[in-house]
Write a protein that binds this DNA or RNA. Sequence first.
DNA 1: TTTGATTGTTCGTACGCTTTACTAACAAAT
DNA 2: ATTTGTTAGTAAAGCGTACGAACAATCAAA
Lengths: 371, 371
Amino acid sequence: MSTPSPAGYATGRILRPSAKSLPEHSRSHNRALVLQTLYRSGGISRADLARATGLTRVTISDLVAQLIVDDLIVELGQRSPLKGEDARPGKPATLLDINRRGFQIIGIDLSDHAVLCGGVLDLDGAVLERREVRLAGADGQSATGQAAVDKVVALTRELIAAAGAPILGIGVGSPGVVDLGGTILSAPNLGFRDLPLQAMLAAETGLPVLVANDANAAVLAEHSFGGALSDTMLVRIGHGVGAGLLLGGTPLFGSRFAAGEIGHVVVGTDGGAPCACGKVGCLETWLAIPRLEAALAAAPDEAGRTAILRAAGERLGIALAPVVGALDLAEVVLSGPADTLGGPFTDAAIETLRNRTMAEFHGDLTVRMTA
Amino acid sequence: MSTPSPAGYATGRILRPSAKSLPEHSRSHNRALVLQTLYRSGGISRADLARATGLTRVTISDLVAQLIVDDLIVELGQRSPLKGEDARPGKPATLLDINRRGFQIIGIDLSDHAVLCGGVLDLDGAVLERREVRLAGADGQSATGQAAVDKVVALTRELIAAAGAPILGIGVGSPGVVDLGGTILSAPNLGFRDLPLQAMLAAETGLPVLVANDANAAVLAEHSFGGALSDTMLVRIGHGVGAGLLLGGTPLFGSRFAAGEIGHVVVGTDGGAPCACGKVGCLETWLAIPRLEAALAAAPDEAGRTAILRAAGERLGIALAPVVGALDLAEVVLSGPADTLGGPFTDAAIETLRNRTMAEFHGDLTVRMTA
DNA sequence: TTTGATTGTTCGTACGCTTTACTAACAAAT
DNA sequence: ATTTGTTAGTAAAGCGTACGAACAATCAAA
């Protein structure tokens, strides 16, 4: 599952992985293919699988037999005879499905600034258990560095104890810059720097661990469970502003693993507020929730609040228009506090985006909260 | 080589291709791996190849034997004994190399507005022959639609006749929107609409044909021959403005095969000139070469010209900053007339880009012409 | 001369998928 | 009740791919 990162990745500049291909790769590939197909539409027969995948019934039978031994697939019994018009001749099919209750997954979200939250999920993404740990210690100081790592480990242990079935793996979404090996290169809020969290948790638990950027994880989750398309951008708006990009169904990492870090891109040609990073008019200065809420609190009336939200939404649209145009995105998903971002903000962002990109782009612009 | 586009692509919404994996895929994959390795550094032995690829000497011998039969690899004779310090024990190695002179490639560029140009290239990308066809007919009208297709076919025939060795395939770079199957969905300049040029040329010549967006082809060429990195954006500036994106070494197509079509993205928040598309301040209105040259001609002095170029470069920087930030690009390559874009324009674009993105991005910004 | 190292080949083996051929089970027609 | 035709799933044989072990050829160094 979790492949150790090749030496080439450590240098920062990705070397071509010189990936040789063995026949056994076929096997695991096809195993995954069967599982994916079955995952998307369970309750189908071996023959259906064969038709869906293009493999032979024989091969499917072989693969399924192994997967049943591994307890990843279960037989549901025979297909009901479909009386009436839909009656079909021939031997009735034995239906298969992924063992949806037999395994569980642990997910941990480090993106909140005050609370580490995690959960035990089943394979459908339903949350079975939920646990939280406050980052602030007894002294009121927010834990960082090693103290924060300890809290993460403690939360992980708690979740493992709470699980009611074998755990397939652990997924961690972290803010900041995370490389392919699950090392958090930089996460200012938590005080992490070159922290090999994935390796640490793997050693700690003995389970497969995947540590990734939170926005990237979120967009993948939207794609898997939220029905997002294969070319999607998910913009996270909170204390900072980040984004996860899904292009052709695969997440984008970028040359320095910093893809989606759009918080400090200057937007517009008319100045703006100074930013902590030293520039003026960064996207974060327009959109960060604390600033937005402060401005809203100072607004005299409802119309004023709407104007503030519309202005912020416009800024987002201005910043995203070139990205949407250049990438031909089909969808943009916003993630953040719904009460603030749900109304005029989103409307203004949509309008601005449409006005500033080609007429062809009439794709939907949806706003949803992350699961 | 040219895979027929699955039915799923025709709908516009990409369905997962449900790619099964056969053992023979391993074979072709490893064949390609050997050829790539040998292409990048020719004059190495079978044992070297084994070490470079991770495959066994046995397997390499087998693969190489087949490739020699196919005339894709040639033996160069034994390695010179390397007298002196570099002397090595053991059986002397027989060196191999790609058959660099044995095959040729035909490349055709449809992006110029007045002339179709094409060439015969060897495997190193060197141009051996060059042919051109003017689009304007006897009546002075620029050929479009079927007339333009006829000219492309004629040019192709001419190039095939000019080739001095077996032709591996034909590559065509077209402006506009091109899908994965080589159908030009839309190319206003040439009057193409839903034109299956790839299939037509393949039927006409019996050779493998690849039709792709010109900017995408250019960025791939830049990556292969020009030393561009794996995360690169190539911006073509001519009568229109387009871009090709290379992310992680693979080109990006976008959800509607329109990735890189940034010409009609509105840039800046301070108005601009009206555009043919109906909006105001599109990138093309700032950068298109005819407009730029007209403005330059009207400039009173050298300082005025510099100011105009700097302003245009700034606009490009403003438009690209969010893209570079969101994608974490390592490199931006500009393509267009060097005398116009080479100096202040590029400098201004670089400065603007650096000022508007995070401090981390100190990657190089190079300007080169396409081969 | 002997020893050790390197190259490239031959032989046998393990694995994965396909084709072919078969049995089991069912619906519809007779 | 029997026959016919279809579908589901399994078993055996075959082909392709890569690997490991063993070996011959070759050369440098002791």
